[in-house]
Design a binder for these strands. Structure first.
Length: 776
DNA sequence: CGCAAAGCTTATCTG
DNA sequence: AAGCTTTGCG
């Protein structure tokens, strides 16, 4: 038997050895599914001589894809793994779409719009339709359109669907269909795809171009999909098409961990897999290698409250381990303190490293209290889920230039930098350009190219043409130089780098460093060997730009760094930690208020709870707070209903003090952690009852205008400023009389310094201020 | 035009 | 409480 099969249990081996035909691997939490997937790929290549070029593996994160490739390479050691097609749905499809773009009318280097870009387009569309963006909030509209796309419903189908229309009308947003329509057209005009388009357009490619369907059906003889429970209908249909020829589709998933329905994922994909394919082999991996028996028992019990799952019972041969600890605190800050204290204590007593701890929560907003408490204890930590490096303003600015060079139709990029750094193309000119591009239904860039014909003022026309010339010169440089050289030159030539360099504030220096880091990243990209991209090798700037939009900060941050990890439960999917703190187990927070209206929603929240429990290898704390701040206001929360689903026998009853909670509907015996038990609690904030907000002995603030109101002389009329010079006496509407000290500034923006009798020295911009010359 | 202050909104999860 | 947008002003 091959060496790589040795470490597998019977079920795992069965999953690996199955060669042809559809197979569903139901892999419980911690049952070694990554190992099975990689070994399966290895086995296909080593034992069955399947060519790496014929294997497609779709994962949930870029990082998982990387790891898988590495593991296969480690076993095979012949460099073949580089030819595997492994990546996320989005990155793999983006790569193929780049290759086939012309067939569906897109430029090869189409831009991928991230959520911010997409929302910005939506804003413009909503504005152009003269709709109220209070009623049509871009965020909401975006989600609605995203759901439609993930269900493969285009604008026409959207408008024709009675149920959808009823929903929109009832929500008083009847025009979403129209917005959707315009949005799609606008994105196409911009040569851009949003995240959902990467799936939708790939699907359309397969559906409408028979030669493409055939090519990729033949190419991908073996298809493997990780985290199948979180795929949506678009992904489902794509796989069905791609796999139709060989039917060698291997899906791995756990219905109990399906937590992405908000992204259009439907648990039906995994529940129905057996009905959708003939002769499906089903293998269940039920032995858990990750957690202690105590932890697994709690997980099993909790998930049993859900209906309609694939039947399975997870077991483990691991030791029983410690019991679970449930901890109540008075406030969210106390919760933070408790967790930081506990981490410190565990480190001292049991010699855990920082990186063995994770604090997991339902919403990103909860991270603040933990950050503060960890910082106070000097415990290093990493937060996941903030804005990624490539979302920072200065980075996006620079990237916008590069985007425009590669794809001049990219209107979002153009809007961002056409007047940054300032070059005299103001709002008026830009609005006119955008209006024209809407009228002619062509890209803003096309209007710019013919600016001469649209009656701009001479000066404006000149700056517009200079801008066009500059961008064109960058683009032509791209033909001869590599991406890094072009980017470096752009930074220098536009003055962007210089502007950041001159800003010596702390943030300014940081921004400058970020740009340097961006340049480094481009350099690394251009120089790295061609082993990451399968057979469609593309080291162009365009390929780089598409790739960075698909990176998440989980891909950018180093998991091995010795820091405590803070993230949402969603982000923790697929990860494991020795010690886990599941925080904020409160009604309305977890389960979240947004998800308690239907059984389906509530069951998904419960699966989320299941996921957080099963992240823990050795120790698990579950915490909740009586009160926490929301929108700057203190709110009270009941303990989460999920706590009552935990079997009492699994709990550590002696834990954290002896206080019982009076009036708590849950079992007594859990500790309290609040001002009484923590070292330094802030006194309770006095909440606004309208009384004694301010001590009465304090004098009221003076209400008199500090500047002292000046009453202008009757018939006040500003004088002609062109002749103003030092020494003249002037009158100002508000500041009264004064003497001109000096006149400076450029010709089109002169600034006078005036010493006023009652208001001291002021700088006055003569273009805007109203001054009357009293005497020469 | 560009800045600062005031005002308003917001926070479920994400590639 | 914090971030983003609008406003008011020189």
């Amino acid at each position: 038997m091959q060496e790589y099969l040795q470490g597998l249990n019977e079920k795992q081996r069965e999953a690996v050895l199955h060669k042809d035909g559809p197979i569903m691997i139901v892999a419980g939490a911690g049952s070694g599914k990554t190992k099975v997937l990689t070994t399966r790929i290895t086995h296909l290549m080593a034992a069955h001589q399947v060519d790496a070029f014929n294997i497609l593996a779709l994962t949930f994160t870029n990082k998982a894809a990387h790891e898988m490739k590495e593991r296969v390479e480690r076993v095979l050691g012949n460099g073949e793994a580089r030819n595997l097609y492994i990546g996320t749905f989005h990155s793999v499809f983006a790569r193929i779409l780049r290759f086939e773009a012309d067939k569906i009318g897109y430029p090869r280097h189409f831009t991928i719009y991230d959520t911010d870009d997409a929302k910005s387009v939506l804003k413009a569309v909503i504005h152009d339709l003269h709709l109220d963006d209070k009623q049509y909030k871009p965020n909401l509209v975006y989600n609605r359109i995203s759901s439609a796309k993930n269900a493969l419903i285009g604008p026409e189908a959207y408008k024709a669907d009675y149920a959808i229309q009823q929903e929109d009308v009832r929500a008083n947003r009847p025009a979403i269909g129209q917005i959707y329509d315009n949005y799609v057209k606008r994105c196409f005009r911009n040569g851009a795809m949003d995240f959902d388009d990467l799936l939708l357009k790939f699907y359309e490619l397969l559906r409408t171009i028979p030669e493409c369907l055939s090519r990729y059906q033949h190419k991908f003889k073996y298809i493997l999909i990780d985290e199948y429970q979180d795929t949506n209908p678009a992904q489902y249909e794509i796989i069905k098409l791609l796999g139709a020829l060989h039917e060698n589709v291997c899906v791995v998933g756990d219905d109990a961990q399906s937590i992405y329905s908000f992204r259009g994922a439907t648990i039906q994909n995994i529940l129905q897999f057996q009905k959708n394919y003939d002769n499906v082999t089903v293998v269940k991996l039920e032995q858990n290698y990750r957690s202690t028996r105590s932890i697994l028992e709690v997980a099993n019990e909790v998930i049993s409250h859900n209906k309609g799952q694939i039947e399975k019972v997870l077991f483990t041969e691991n030791p029983e381990g410690e019991k679970i600890k449930i901890v109540r605190t008075l406030t969210d800050n106390d919760e933070g303190k408790f967790i930081a204290d506990s981490i410190q204590e565990q480190k001292l007593r049991h010699h855990f490293a920082n990186k063995e701890f994770a604090i997991l929560y339902r919403t990103n907003a909860q991270s603040r209290a933990f950050e503060e408490s960890l910082r106070r204890m000097a415990i290093p930590y990493t937060i996941y889920g903030g804005i990624s490096f490539y979302q920072r303003k200065e980075v996006k600015d620079m990237v916008a230039y590069l985007r425009l060079i590669v794809n001049p139709r990219d209107e979002e990029a153009l809007k961002r930098i056409i007047n940054y750094p300032t070059r005299g193309i103001g709002k008026t000119s830009l609005d006119k350009l955008l209006l024209l591009s809407n009228e002619k239904d062509c890209s803003t860039w096309a209007i710019l190219l013919q600016a001469r014909e649209y009656g701009f003022r001479a000066g404006t026309l000149m700056v517009l043409e200079n801008f066009v010339t500059m961008v064109k010169s960058f683009a032509s440089m791209l033909e001869k130089s590599n991406a890094y050289d072009v980017a470096f030159y752009v930074g220098k030539q536009t003055g962007l780098v210089k502007e950041l360099f001159n800003d010596k504030s702390t943030e300014g220096i940081q921004r400058y460093e970020n740009i340097q880091e961006l340049l480094n990243s481009i350099k690394e990209w251009t120089e790295s060997p061609d082993n990451e991209e399968g057979e469609l090798v593309d080291k162009s700037l365009g390929a780089y730009l598409q790739q960075i939009t698909l990176l998440t900060d989980a891909d950018e941050k180093d998991v091995d760094a010795d820091t405590v990890k803070l993230m949402t439960i969603h982000a923790a999917k697929g990860l494991e930690f020795s010690c886990v703190f599941a925080a904020g187990l409160e009604e309305l927070l977890f389960p979240n208020a947004m998800a308690i209206n239907t059984r389906e929603e509530l069951e998904e929240e419960r699966r989320l709870f299941y996921v957080v429990i099963t992240r823990a290898k050795q120790k698990l704390w579950i915490t909740y707070a009586n009160t926490r701040y929301r929108f700057g206001q203190l709110v009270q929360n009941e303990p989460s209903r999920f706590l009552a689903e935990i079997p009492p026998a699994a709990l550590d009853k002696s834990f954290a003090g002896t206080k019982t909670i009076s009036g708590n509907p849950l079992r007594a015996g859990w500790g309290g952690y609040g001002p009484g038990s923590s070292r330094e609690s802030k006194p309770e904030r006095t909440t606004g009852n309208g009384l004694s907000e301010k001590p009465s002995y304090l004098a009221p603030k003076p209400t008199v205008n500090k500047t002292g109101e000046h009453v202008p002389t009757p018939g006040f009329a500003p004088s002609d400023m062109s002749e103003l010079e030092a020494g003249q006496r002037v009158e100002h509407m508000k500041f009264g009389y004064g003497e001109v000290i000096k006149v400076e500034g450029s010709a089109h923006n002169p600034i006078a310094t005036v010493r006023f009798e009652n208001n001291g020295e002021k700088k006055i911009m003569l273009n805007y201020a109203r001054l009357r010359i009293v005497s020469p």
